[in-house]
Design a binder for these strands. Structure first.
Lengths: 226, 226
DNA sequence: ATAGTGAGTTAACATTGGGTTAATATGAAA
DNA sequence: TTTCATATTAACCCAATGTTAACTCACTAT
C-alpha cells in the first residue's frame, strides 16, 4: 500500500493534469495547486509526503514558496523537489538553499519522474532512521543510560531526551524550535535559557566537544575522534 | 548467530522488498507473503520466530490473520507484531486482543524497526527463562522467599512480585505503568503512592541500595557489589 | 461472635533534586 | 563599537517521590 501523498504545483494546467493523471494511476494520492500561495494553503492542510514545485511561476516563485513551506513544522519531513527547465542550473543552488531535496528538469519524461519519485520517497523513509549509536557513544533506552566509551553515564530525563535527539542525526543541526518541540512538547512553553542550561549540564557530563553550537541556528552532535 | 526466522506480510511488494533486503542483510532468515491466506500457509510451514503483519490488507486483514495464526499450537511462541499507519490507534487495542505482542507504525524507520525486532526477539528468549538470580540475591518461587547472601527473607505477595519483576532484568528501568500492569494487572486501579510504599518496604527489607529510582521514569534493580 | 493479625491501600505531610529562571558574563558578528 | 545570541552561575520552584501512620479487609484463633 504505497499511498504516499503528493502535491503538484505548477502554473501550467496541462502539466498538472498530465502528472496528476499518471501519478494517481500509480496509486499516489495527489493534490494540485496553480500558484505558490495556493500551494502553501494546500500543503498546510494536506501534509503531503512529497511536493513537486515549479520554479518559474508568476507572483510567488518556487524558491520563495519552498521557503514558506519549510516554515511549517508539520512539513519538516516533506520532500520538496523543483521542476526546472533544462539549463536553468542556478536553480539548483538557490533551490537547495531554500530547502529542496532534489530537482527534476523539464521536459518531463514520466518514466524518469516516477522512478525518481519512488526513489525519493524510499530514501526519505530510510533517512528518517534514528541513530542511537555512534562510534564512541551509545544510548540505551532500556537502562536509561548513555554508554560513552564503555562507561555508563546516567542522565536525568530531559538531558537524556535532549542528547538522544541530537544523536539521532549526528552532524545535523537542530534548531531550538525543533528541540523544544520534541523534548518539551509543542504546547508547553519554557524560557529560552532553559535549553542552554541543559546543554551545559550535558557538556559537563559527556565532554564539551560532543555538542557544537551553531550560532543563530541551533546545536548539533558531532562525533569526536581522538 | 542471530538466525531468527521472520515472516513479513504486507500487500505492498515494495515494502516487502525493502524490509526483506534489509533484514536479510542483518542476518535474519526471511520469508514473505502478500496476503493473509498465504501468510498462514507459510507460517505453518516455516514456523517463524517473528511475524510482521500489516493490519490493512485486502480480503483477510491483519487482525483476522493473527487470530488464525494463533490457532496453530506450533506457533504459540511466535511473536506477532502489527504494522499500522500512524494514527490508527484503535489497532492497538484490537491487535492486542487478537494476540499481537507489539505494533510498529508506518512510515517505517528501518533503524527503529531493527532495534524493535532485536528487542522483541531477545525479550522473547529471555522471557522463556526469567532471570531470578543475581550475584547476591536469589528468588525462590516455591518457598516464596528471597535469599540474600544466604539468609532467607520472606516477603508478602506484592512485594515479592515487585522484586521479582525488577530483578527479572537487572539495570533495566521499569516504568510505573509497566509495574502496575504486571504486578497489579492492567485493569485494577490503585493510588499513585501505593507503589512507593511497596518500594519502601522492599528497601527496608533488602537494603536501600538495590532499588534505584530514576525520577520521571521508573525504578531499576541494581546489583550492589562489595 | 469477637478480637487479633498482617497484607494492602490510602491519606497526609515531608523531602528532594530535576527543571526552570534570573542575573550577569562572554564572545562572535555586523 | 555596538549588538545580539549564547554561556555560566547560582538561586528558586515544584512535581515526583519518600515517609509515616492510619485505615480497610480478609483470615484466623479464641
Amino acid at each position: 500500500m504505497n499511498s504516499s501523498k503528493i502535491l503538484l504545483v505548477d502554473d501550467d494546467e496541462d502539466i498538472l493534469d498530465l502528472l496528476e493523471y499518471n501519478l494517481t494511476k500509480e496509486g499516489y494520492i495527489v493534490q494540485t495547486a496553480l500558484n505558490g500561495k495556493k500551494a502553501i494553503e494546500v500543503a498546510n492542510e494536506f501534509i503531503p509526503d512529497l511536493i513537486i514545485l515549479d520554479v518559474m511561476m508568476p507572483e510567488m516563485d518556487g524558491i520563495e514558496t519552498c521557503g514558506e513551506i519549510r516554515k511549517n513544522k508539520q512539513l519538516a519531513n516533506t520532500i520538496i523537489t523543483f521542476l526546472t527547465a533544462r539549463g536553468e542550473d542556478y536553480s539548483q543552488i538557490a533551490g537547495y538553499e531554500a530547502g529542496a531535496d532534489d530537482y527534476i528538469t523539464k521536459p518531463i519524461k514520466p518514466k524518469v519522474l516516477f522512478s525518481k519519485i519512488k526513489g525519493l520517497l524510499r530514501r526519505a523513509s530510510i533517512e528518517a532512521e534514528l541513530i542511537e549509536e555512534t562510534a564512541s557513544m551509545k544510548i540505551d533506552r532500556e537502562k536509561y543510560v548513555v554508554i560513552q566509551k564503555g562507561t555508563e553515564i546516567s542522565l536525568p530525563k530531559k538531558e537524556f531526551e535532549l542528547l538522544a535527539l541530537l544523536m539521532s542525526r549526528p552532524n545535523n543541526v537542530f534548531t531550538r524550535e525543533k528541540i523544544f518541540a520534541t523534548v518539551w512538547g509543542d504546547d508547553i512553553v519554557v524560557g529560552d535559557r532553559t535549553i542552554d542550561v541543559h546543554i551545559r549540564k550535558l557538556r559537563e557530563k559527556i565532554g564539551d566537544d560532543y555538542i557544537k553550537t551553531v550560532k543563530g541556528v541551533g546545536y548539533k552532535f558531532v562525533e569526536v575522534e581522538s
